[in-house]
């Protein structure tokens, strides 16, 4: 997993609520058996017409917007547990998704992919959308060790919460599997001690 410390980037705004993982990566693209290449079909049905031509009104097709931060309405990533949604965002070059809340499974999948789900309040999210609307090139600084989101041009600064363990994992590029494998003796002891074993 790629390490994450700080990120300086502009943001791509997608001010819709309840963006589900079927939109992020439609089910028909889940037939691949590797993790790579899903970025090509990120938001496919919003991005492209049935004939494959781009829908110019969709934000990812608007040359005005670019960056490694996706700014999205609340309850981002609801629905299916497909980790392919996080892989698709990552593969398309996003490193951070900002929303006012994330669906639980998506949040976990993002963290396991090295994609930072950065949660702000509803009011802060509205402020961020307003900043990007005013100036699409607005730069943001995400500082994971400090847990801050900073806007140099306006002086806005927001604190965000993240689980302390997950923060360490992101900063160091570790994942849960390393830790769990190191705990195998305890896991085997638990199995032995259990009185029932159906």
């Amino acid at each position: 997993m790629e390490k994450f410390q700080t990120l300086h980037s502009s943001a791509v705004p997608l001010p819709l609520e309840n963006i589900d993982t079927d939109q992020i990566i439609p089910a028909r693209f889940l037939k691949a058996t590797t993790r790579e290449g899903f970025g090509e079909n990120l938001f496919c049905d919003w991005r492209r017409n049935p004939d494959g031509s781009p829908k110019p009104e969709f934000v990812l097709n608007d040359p005005k917007y670019s960056g490694q931060i996706l700014l999205a309405g609340k309850n981002f990533g609801c629905g299916s547990s497909r980790e392919h949604a996080a892989w698709a965002l990552d593969d398309a070059g996003f490193r951070v998704v900002i929303s006012s809340y994330f669906a639980d499974i998506f949040r976990g999948n993002a963290l396991n992919t090295g994609l930072l789900p950065l949660q702000v309040t509803d009011a802060e999210l509205n402020r961020l959308f307003a900043l990007v609307e005013r100036d699409a090139a607005t730069q943001f600084v995400v500082n994971l060790p400090e847990q801050t989101l900073h806007v140099p041009a306006t002086g806005d600064s927001f604190h965000f919460d993240i689980d302390a363990y997950k923060k360490e994992c992101l900063i160091n590029g570790y994942d849960d599997i390393d830790y769990l494998v190191s705990q195998k003796p305890a896991i085997e002891a638990y199995e032995q001690a259990r009185t029932w074993n159906w």
Partner: peptide, 22 residues
């Protein structure tokens, strides 16, 4: 409960998950 593929691998490797209590 449902899990992502990274967690599928964790359960395959250790029969466990690292979780916060909801």
């Amino acid at each position: 409960f449902g899990i992502g593929t990274s967690q599928v691998a964790q359960v395959m490797a250790t029969q466990c998950l690292l979780l916060s209590r909801p």
